[in-house]
Amino acid sequence: MINSTLNELKKLNKLNPIKYVPVSVSRKRPKTGLAPGSLIYTGQVYTDEIKIQVIDYTDDHIEEIEITEVAELERFNNPDTVTWINIQGLHDVEVISSIGKLMGLHPLTMEDILDTNQRPKVEEFEDHLYISMKMINHLEDHNKIDIEQVSIIAHNNFVICFQEKPGDVFNDIRTRLRNGKGRARKRGADYLSYMLIDVIIDFYYETLDQVWNKIERLDDLVVRRPDRIELNDIQVIRRDLIQLRRYMYPVRDVVHSISNSQGQFFSDQTLMFVRDSYDHAVQVVENLDTYREILNSVMDLYLSQLSNKMNEVMKVLTVMSSIFIPLTFIAGIYGMNFEHMPELGWAISYPVGFWSLIGVVAVIMVIFMKSRKWL
């Protein structure tokens, strides 16, 4: 349907390329009209294959493997160990559906996992807790912000992470689990869920730091060299902050809901750490608001600088016009074709009379403007 519409638009454009103005083609939401629990992948990231990485550990044991068959996950459903299942790739709905059925996930949970355009949230089911967050990372090589949805399934003895594509911010957690130092392997699956949430929020700080560095550079250039920046430079950062606000604000509510839970999936000891993550989420939101206000001030200052520059140009043009208006008047008088003018018979009327008058009037105009502090 969309392709046929685009073809018609192209034909109209060829018939009347000047007057025809193309219109945007509306896209229908893939899930519109479907029953609740319908599994449809709404994202745009398609990997070569879905990778399933498993880390199964206890206090004195750790096993890290990558499996190729979904049925192999059944042997890791062991209450005596903690299992972290990390799934990279969501485009194959059949594979994701089979994982959900094997692990006993609710159909609405599976629907939310495949819907990558939703707002971050937390939902509590009978035997698991569903947490949806946005994993945000600033890619310095490409100078852009990478945003990816992460769905976390918190169970009593296992944690499942669903990611859209390979690569994440969890390498430090994997290192801590492999080293076996600290409390990472001494706690249960709830502490693993906390670590995942906490490291995602930590990378919010790093992303905002990169954005702040850009705002600082713009602020310095606006004051010293406003001619070296354009309004689009400010608008790009403004759009980034709006997008970050859309995904970071709900995380504060998500962590707050977890910190106030009754302890079914998170123990009291772990909830103390979750409350610390909530403080971090609040700081992130406050920093985000502060950066938005500063960026608005930078934009106002930039527009003010442009206005001042324009005023200076208009001031110079106005002064020049004010000086030359009476001179043009005098030149117009002497340019009239009259036979009887008193100065015409005077031999030195042009070099002395005309140019002296011009000079005297120009000097008087300059002195007058300086007395008014217009120059």
Rank of each mutant, 00 (worst) to 15 (best):
M1I: 04
M1Y: 13
N3M: 05
L9E: 12
N13V: 10
N13A: 14
N16T: 12
P17Y: 12
K19R: 13
K28Q: 15
R29N: 15
R29S: 14
P30D: 11
G37D: 02
G37P: 08
S38Y: 02
D48A: 08
I52G: 05
V54C: 08
I55E: 06
I55G: 05
I55Y: 07
D56M: 02
Y57S: 09
T58E: 09
V70A: 02
V70Q: 05
A71P: 00
L73A: 05
E74R: 10
R75M: 13
N78K: 14
T81F: 13
W84S: 03
I87Q: 03
I87G: 02
E94G: 02
I99P: 05
G100F: 04
G100P: 06
L102Q: 08
M103F: 11
P107V: 09
L108F: 04
L108K: 00
M110Q: 01
M110T: 01
E111L: 07
I113E: 08
L114V: 08
L114C: 11
T116A: 07
K121Q: 05
E126N: 09
S132N: 11
N137H: 15
H142T: 12
H142E: 14
N143C: 03
K144R: 14
A154N: 03
F162R: 03
G167R: 01
D172Y: 04
I173C: 10
I173V: 13
I173W: 09
L177S: 01
G180C: 07
K186M: 11
G188H: 12
A189D: 08
S193W: 01
M195D: 09
I201P: 06
F203L: 10
T207D: 07
D209C: 05
W212M: 10
I215V: 15
E216Q: 11
R225P: 06
D227W: 09
R228S: 15
R228H: 12
I229P: 02
E230H: 15
N232G: 10
D233S: 13
Q235I: 10
R239F: 02
I242Q: 03
Q243H: 06
Q243A: 10
L244D: 05
R245P: 00
R246T: 04
M248F: 00
V251Y: 07
V254P: 01
V255I: 13
S257L: 00
S257G: 03
D268H: 11
Q269V: 13
L271D: 04
L271C: 06
H280P: 04
V282T: 11
Q283R: 12
V285N: 06
V285S: 07
V285M: 03
T290W: 05
T290V: 06
E293P: 02
E293Y: 01
I294V: 14
V298C: 06
V298L: 04
M299F: 09
D300S: 10
S304V: 06
L306Q: 15
S307P: 04
S307F: 02
K309T: 15
M310S: 08
E312N: 14
M314A: 12
F324Q: 13
I325A: 07
F329S: 06
Y334H: 05
G335L: 08
G335Q: 07
M336E: 04
M336D: 09
F338S: 08
F338G: 10
S349E: 00
G353P: 01
I358H: 09
V366P: 10
F368C: 00
K370C: 00
